[in-house]
Design a protein around this nucleic acid. Structure first.
Lengths: 205, 205
DNA sequence: GACCAATCGTGATATATTTCACATATTCAG
DNA sequence: CTGAATATGTGAAATATATCACGATTGGTC
């Protein structure tokens, strides 16, 4: 069965926790209770999640840490290369370009685009900024499936439409827009205003 | 009753949608069905969410757009000033400093800190970077409740502990760490790896 | 003013998610 | 080898969330 978003997010937390833990103190195995305690999750939940990705533990012992990490990475698809394009090299786009953690997840930004003629041709973080007009041919030629969207709000839907028309399969949306796309295209929103709302509400209490 | 996180997120989507819509074409009222259609949500859900924040609509007409926006902003606490400190002026921290959208939500970054002596004293986006050693006295003196955490992973928990000990009430966590804090302190995680996992999984299918 | 169509408000229903409870399996001690 | 202790794995129960169904209310039309 297709894994739900909440499950994927928990799997990531397990993975991160185990990576951090083993980095400081190498351990072979871990129990669902230990993970649950650290991440403030119910132990049963941990076991069910593990079961969902085919992990089996050992009674009285727990799970092989190595196996867990491996299984999560495989299920997520981090072992596959995912070339991506980044569109809009503003402050945020620039910050993402230099983010060092992407390769760990199989993501590599292979080209960056911007509609500002003053930027095109220039170089940023080792990438030559291309004109937005070369976006379509590039995606077609290299069979890109993922686009990272960092444009101003005004053009984000327009760019999204172009991306869809040329066959993109996922859009990582850093613009504060609710994009309209066909159901087979995944949009993952990374609006920080959502986080801000939770914080502001908490502080008001 | 205390609003749930999912409700808050939907309220934000309504608010953003209405802001965008009215910006291009001024309208007085809107129906739950119209909002639901645009955001791919059930109309009943919209009405229940509105009911939860005390909004009442009019039969055959819908809701006053103005009222909705106003109610959301009030409930969220965007009408109150929220001074915040930002810790860790790297790529991401720098990008956040120049983000123009915060004031709309009542958030203002009043001071920025970094532990790198090479950075302290310098200026970035209109802020003088302070030494991390002045963090505690600053928070105490100005009664700051919110911290934006953009430090390297290695020190994030240490800084979080210091923040908690000096009375911070919410941490907006941009570092890929599961922070351990007392239950009365809100941590909102903004790990982009979570989004990445959803994308990688989708692309693998 | 009376009727019709469209919309809200909400209890009931359905679905999804989390937690509980316990049988089963494994380790360790004596 | 046996028994006690501690894990897992999973069906059942509880909780949370979303959707349906429908009465109540409003605005427009004749």
């Amino acid at each position: 069965m297709r894994l739900k978003r909440v499950v994927l997010e928990r799997l990531m937390r397990y993975h991160r926790f185990l990576s951090q833990t083993t980095a400081s103190k190498p351990i072979q195995t871990i129990t669902s209770a230990q993970i649950a305690e650290a991440l403030d999750i119910d132990p049963t939940q941990v076991r069910k999640d593990f079961g969902a990705i085919g992990l089996v533990g050992i009674g009285r012992v727990g799970y092989q840490v190595e196996d867990v990490c491996c299984a999560v990475r495989t299920v997520m698809g981090f072992d596959k290369e995912n070339p991506a394009v980044l569109i809009g090299v503003g402050q945020l786009g620039g910050a993402l370009l230099t983010y060092p953690g992407f390769e760990k997840y199989g993501l590599s930004i292979t080209a960056v685009f911007d509609s500002d003629p003053a930027k095109t041709g220039r170089s940023k973080a080792g990438h030559t900024i291309r004109s937005i007009r070369s976006l379509k041919p590039y995606i077609r030629k290299h069979d890109i499936m993922l686009a990272i969207l960092c444009t101003p709000v005004e053009v984000s839907q327009t760019i999204a439409d172009r991306l869809v028309s040329v066959g993109i399969k996922a859009i990582w949306n850093f613009t504060p827009t609710d994009l309209a796309v066909p159901p087979d295209v995944l949009v993952r929103d990374e609006h920080i205003s959502l986080g801000l709302s939770e914080i502001a509400y908490h502080l008001k209490q």
